[in-house]
Computed example of a mutant assay.
Amino acid sequence: MQEGLLTLYSEVEASPIHWLWYPYIAIGKITLLQGDPGDGKSTMMMNLIAEITTGGAFPDGKPLEQPQRVIYQCSEDGVADTIKPRLEEQGADCSKVAFINEEVNSGLTLDDERIRDAIVAFRPRLVVIDPIQAYLASDSDLQISGKARRLMQHLGMWATAYECAIVLNRAP
């Protein structure tokens, strides 16, 4: 047998999963939120962002320990006329919600180091990418498992390394 090829599970130290919102959104992991257009994915995220940034409670009533920061990256809605008013309507603390300005930073993709840089600089507890399709490079195809795996690998490593949860919104 080739040296270093296999690792025995007996050599792995088990560790618990840390949850942002149990059992839906885990810290250090990627969560895919999928639904048809108009199902309320973005509205649900706005409500969740409001609760996270104010230290409120999750939809199931479980209280948050303290207010946290969020990166909400959305390419489909206007920042000033749609996203900020929605955040304010839900009661979010907008001083704890950031985004990468795509007017200045064009060509943003899911495996872009600027996302990692933003996570390092802002230290959010939650990163939301809405919708995932808008941040796929022209040569990306989520239907091809090898490409999808490589694409998600960066995000997953960043979520783990910087202890944040990443939610990807996707409409079919």
Score class of each variant (00 low, 15 high):
residue 138 S to Q: 15
residue 51 E to K: 00
residue 124 P to T: 06
residue 124 P to A: 09
residue 7 T to M: 14
residue 113 E to V: 14
residue 48 L to S: 04
residue 171 A to S: 13
residue 82 T to W: 10
residue 136 L to A: 08
residue 7 T to A: 14
residue 67 P to D: 05
residue 145 S to L: 13
residue 149 R to N: 13
residue 165 A to G: 02
residue 52 I to H: 02
residue 28 G to K: 03
residue 33 L to A: 04
residue 18 H to D: 15
residue 63 P to M: 02
residue 32 L to V: 07
residue 151 L to C: 07
residue 85 P to V: 07
residue 44 M to L: 15
residue 115 I to K: 05
residue 26 A to F: 07
residue 89 E to C: 09
residue 65 E to D: 14
residue 130 D to Q: 01
residue 150 R to G: 15
residue 111 D to R: 10
residue 52 I to Q: 04
residue 82 T to M: 05
residue 116 R to I: 10
residue 163 E to N: 15
residue 10 S to V: 08
residue 169 N to I: 15
residue 59 P to F: 05
residue 36 D to W: 10
residue 93 D to A: 01
residue 131 P to W: 02
residue 35 G to M: 00
residue 88 E to T: 06
residue 136 L to S: 03
residue 53 T to G: 11
residue 71 I to N: 01
residue 35 G to F: 03
residue 8 L to D: 11
residue 44 M to H: 12
residue 145 S to P: 13
residue 168 L to E: 08
residue 17 I to K: 14
residue 83 I to W: 08
residue 102 E to I: 13
residue 130 D to H: 01
residue 21 W to K: 04
residue 70 V to I: 01
residue 5 L to I: 00
residue 50 A to E: 02
residue 7 T to N: 14
residue 94 C to R: 08
residue 59 P to R: 06
residue 14 A to G: 07
residue 110 L to K: 03
residue 80 A to E: 15
residue 58 F to A: 15
residue 157 M to N: 14
residue 70 V to M: 03
residue 77 D to C: 09
residue 25 I to Y: 09
residue 11 E to Q: 12
residue 171 A to L: 12
residue 128 V to N: 00
residue 114 R to T: 05
residue 139 D to L: 04
residue 2 Q to M: 11
residue 137 A to I: 07
residue 127 V to H: 00
residue 26 A to C: 01
residue 93 D to M: 07
residue 91 G to T: 00
residue 108 L to C: 06
residue 76 E to V: 06
residue 152 M to P: 04
residue 38 G to E: 03
residue 102 E to V: 12
residue 39 D to A: 15
residue 134 A to H: 10
residue 93 D to Q: 02
residue 125 R to E: 08
residue 24 Y to P: 09
residue 93 D to K: 02
residue 52 I to R: 05
residue 136 L to Y: 02
residue 102 E to H: 08
residue 104 V to E: 11
residue 45 M to E: 08
residue 63 P to F: 04
residue 140 S to Y: 10
residue 156 G to S: 15
residue 133 Q to M: 14
residue 107 G to V: 06
residue 77 D to Y: 10
residue 156 G to Q: 15
residue 172 P to H: 09
residue 93 D to C: 07
residue 58 F to C: 09
residue 104 V to T: 11
residue 19 W to P: 03
residue 98 A to T: 12
residue 167 V to R: 03
residue 150 R to L: 14
residue 113 E to T: 12
residue 132 I to Y: 00
residue 39 D to C: 13
residue 22 Y to P: 03
residue 77 D to T: 05
residue 70 V to H: 06
residue 38 G to N: 01
residue 79 V to P: 11
residue 81 D to R: 13
residue 170 R to S: 15
residue 97 V to K: 04
residue 3 E to K: 14
residue 78 G to W: 06
residue 28 G to H: 02
residue 154 H to T: 11
residue 82 T to H: 10
residue 129 I to N: 06
residue 32 L to C: 02
residue 85 P to N: 07
residue 11 E to M: 10
residue 61 G to T: 00
residue 84 K to D: 11
residue 18 H to P: 10
residue 111 D to Y: 10
residue 128 V to I: 10
residue 143 Q to D: 13
residue 129 I to P: 08
residue 78 G to R: 07
residue 162 Y to L: 01
residue 104 V to Y: 09
residue 160 T to G: 12
residue 165 A to N: 03
residue 74 C to S: 13
residue 116 R to H: 10
residue 137 A to T: 02
residue 24 Y to N: 03
residue 19 W to E: 00
residue 94 C to N: 09
residue 147 K to C: 01
residue 33 L to C: 07
residue 75 S to W: 11
residue 121 A to C: 09
residue 33 L to D: 01
residue 167 V to P: 00
residue 105 N to G: 05
